[in-house]
Amino acid sequence: MGRAIPPRAAAAIAGDEDDDKSSWPEVVGWVMLNAADKINSDRPDVSVAFYMLPTPLPTDYDANRVIIVGDERSVVVRTPVIG
């Protein structure tokens, strides 16, 4: 007799909000490709862009992009975020 809970609301109640994830601090220190796999697993709707230090980063905002910044060893050195 009650109303059904929409899937997104049910996921939020259950604590599973990966669809809305916008940053990945847990991948700092990972190899860039492994970080990209994790990001794509959490958010298959976004693309991943790779940048190596000291390359300048894009200044425009893109809600469908996650930037991964790595060092000379291809290790993530900044928290990847959407934008």
Rank of each mutant, 00 (worst) to 15 (best):
P56M: 11
A14H: 10
V66Q: 01
I5A: 04
T79D: 04
A14K: 05
V46N: 09
V31L: 14
E26R: 12
W24K: 10
S41Y: 11
Y51L: 13
M1F: 10
D45L: 03
V76I: 00
R73S: 09
V31Y: 13
L53N: 15
A36C: 06
I82Q: 01
A12E: 09
D71S: 03
D42R: 09
S22I: 11
D37F: 05
A9N: 08
G15H: 10
V66N: 06
V27T: 04
L57Y: 05
D37W: 08
L33F: 14
G15A: 12
K21S: 14
V75Y: 05
T55E: 09
P6Y: 09
A10R: 03
G29A: 06
R78N: 11
L53W: 12
Y51T: 00
I67T: 02
A49K: 13
A9F: 10
I13M: 07
G15N: 06
N64P: 13
P58N: 07
A14Y: 02
V76T: 00
S23D: 09
D19E: 13
S41F: 10
M32I: 08
V75K: 02
Y51A: 06
R43D: 01
V69C: 03
D42V: 14
N40A: 15
D71I: 02
R8P: 10
G70Y: 06
G83F: 05
P80R: 12
A35Q: 06
P25D: 09
G83K: 03
V27Y: 10
K21R: 15
A14F: 09
A9H: 13
E26G: 12
S74I: 06
P56S: 12
T79Y: 00
E17C: 14
P7S: 13
D20K: 14
E26I: 11
R78F: 01
A12I: 03
I13Q: 11
P6W: 01
V77A: 00
G15D: 09
P44Q: 07
D71K: 08
I82Y: 04
V27D: 01
V69S: 04
D20Y: 13
S22N: 12
I39M: 05
I67C: 07
E17G: 14
V46F: 07
F50W: 01
V28D: 05
N64F: 05
D18A: 15
T55H: 11
R8D: 12
V48R: 07
D42E: 13
E17V: 15
M52E: 06
G70D: 02
D60V: 01
A9T: 14
L57M: 04
G70I: 01
V81Q: 00
A49P: 07
R73V: 02
P6K: 07
R65I: 09
D42A: 15
A10F: 11
F50C: 03
D42I: 14
G29H: 03
G70V: 06
V76L: 08
R3D: 07
D16P: 10
S47I: 00
P80H: 01
A36W: 09
I82K: 02
G70A: 13
R43C: 10
A49W: 08
S47P: 04
A63Y: 07
D18I: 15
P54Y: 03
S47C: 10
P58H: 05
P54S: 04
E17M: 11
D16R: 10
G70T: 06
A4I: 11
D60K: 05
R3A: 06
